[in-house]
Amino acid sequence: MSAEFLKALTANRLGEGDVVFWSGGQWVEQFADAELFTEEGPAEAAVALAKAQPRIVVDAYLIDVTRSDQGVAPVSYRERLRALGPTNELGHGKQALGGAAIAALQAASGAARSTGRLDLIRRK
């Protein structure tokens, strides 16, 4: 595992609750459009700017991002769900938009799922 610093800044819009991502001083709807921070200084500076917008967003925080063959995706499963939408209703949330960027994120999301690694169950 490389220890590369790779983060994005996310929040929810105050009035609507929608998940948004920071991109060069703007809030954007899709993770694919999020600004990726490779250094701590600019990332923390963006957090400070976001926290100065209490009438626009709630709860701004940095998330860890990972690079793989499929592209970039949030590391945690929770953040992938925020970037996509619920897995029980594929027509709801950001995933409803479809397209290559969403498909890539879904593929990355699938890769993060547990795949029976522990093999605890075997037939008698």
């Binding site: 105050l14 609750g17 998940v19 209490p54 009438r55 709630v58 709860d59 709801h92 949330g93």
Partner: peptide
């Protein structure tokens, strides 16, 4: 008052919660 910035999120959160309004992953 919250949308106008007169209440902070810290002050508003317990008020919205007492009216059943949570902020969840994707929306309220």
């Amino acid at each position: 008052r919250r949308l106008a910035g007169e209440l902070s999120e810290d002050q508003f959160k317990p008020l919205r919660l007492m009216n059943g309004l949570y902020l969840q992953l994707h929306a309220y």
